[in-house]
């Protein structure tokens, strides 16, 4: 970019494991180019030097699980021209959205020695449930190549070239024989591409880390899982992981219960 002022980049953390932010630091080959193209103004994982806003591009990791964060995300939005959520927590509520299916107080009582110090919301919700989001990048964690693509697209003023179709297309493009047709239940046909079909390339079924693809027929997939021997609880658990609260996965998991595997 030849412009005098470099766009200011900020990275924000909400309820999350930091893995998606680390994907940015993991862009070893591209980090120098990134530092040349943007001013890294607020990225606590990388530097304690913080420049004040406003920011041209904010990358937001994590979900909203506390009333404090529910207010803080509005401050982030107000300081950000363009806001991109990165990862399953920010985009769908993350693994911590399992609380949405139960009573969070039960979890608190089970986990913490002194539950009276814990102040949390009853649900974990994606950033888009609170503020306008300009772009959502999927994955648990995100794919660093896709992150660079999104940033490069922002800098060029173009749409990111990120496909919303199934993992199957990536599987076939790399020549991996279908594990599901060979008998292993797989979420690939209903899962958003982006990982490069990593698990099937190691002969494992897809875990759905990138959340629902554009038009997921989860009911048809669940029927085929049953034909392969999966019980209702297996199906519920498969849909209740990192993207449990993404609506198509939430709905399918709710259609399956513990009835054929008590306890």
């Amino acid at each position: 970019m030849s412009s005098a002022r470099k766009p200011k980049l900020a990275v924000w953390k909400f309820a999350s494991c930091d893995g998606c932010q680390l994907s940015l630091l993991d862009c070893e080959d591209e980090l120098l180019d990134l530092a040349g193209a943007v001013s890294i103004a607020n990225f606590l994982e990388a530097s304690s030097a913080v420049q004040p806003g406003p920011y041209d591009l904010s990358l937001v990791e994590g979900s909203i699980t506390t009333s404090h964060d529910a207010e803080r995300i509005h401050k982030v939005r107000r300081q950000s021209k363009y806001l991109v959520t990165i990862g399953a927590c920010a985009t769908a509520g993350g693994i911590q959205a399992l609380r949405n299916f139960a009573d969070v107080n039960d979890f608190i009582a089970a986990v913490y020695a002194s539950p009276q110090y814990i102040s949390t919301l009853a649900t974990s919700t994606p950033i888009s449930a609170h503020v306008k989001v300009d772009y959502e990048l999927r994955g648990c964690p995100i794919d660093k190549g896709q992150l660079i693509e999104v940033i490069a697209a922002f800098l060029a003023g173009r749409k990111p070239a990120v496909a919303a179709h199934s993992v199957c297309i990536e599987c076939k493009q790399r020549g991996t024989p279908c594990v599901m047709v060979q008998g292993t239940p797989c979420l690939g046909p209903v899962t958003h591409a982006g990982c490069g079909a990593l698990c099937p390339s190691y002969r494992r079924g897809c875990y759905g880390c990138f959340g629902p693809m554009e038009t997921p027929n989860t009911a048809a997939l669940a029927r085929e899982w049953q034909a392969l021997g999966a019980i209702s609880r297996d199906i519920q658990r498969a849909f209740r992981t990192f993207n449990a609260a993404a609506e198509p996965f939430r709905k399918e998991s709710t259609a399956h219960g513990d009835q054929d595997h008590p306890g």
């Binding site: 970019m1 591209e30 180019d33 990134l34 040349g36 193209a37 660079i148 940033i151 490069a152 697209a153 800098l155 060029a156 173009r158 496909a163 919303a164 179709h165 297309i169 076939k172 493009q173 554009e214 038009t215």
Partner: peptide, 20 residues
Amino acid sequence: TDLAGNTARRVREWDSCFTL
């Protein structure tokens, strides 16, 4: 396009009439 805005690349990939 790359981060520096100096290189653009056009890539052709298999697609499917089943995608939106």
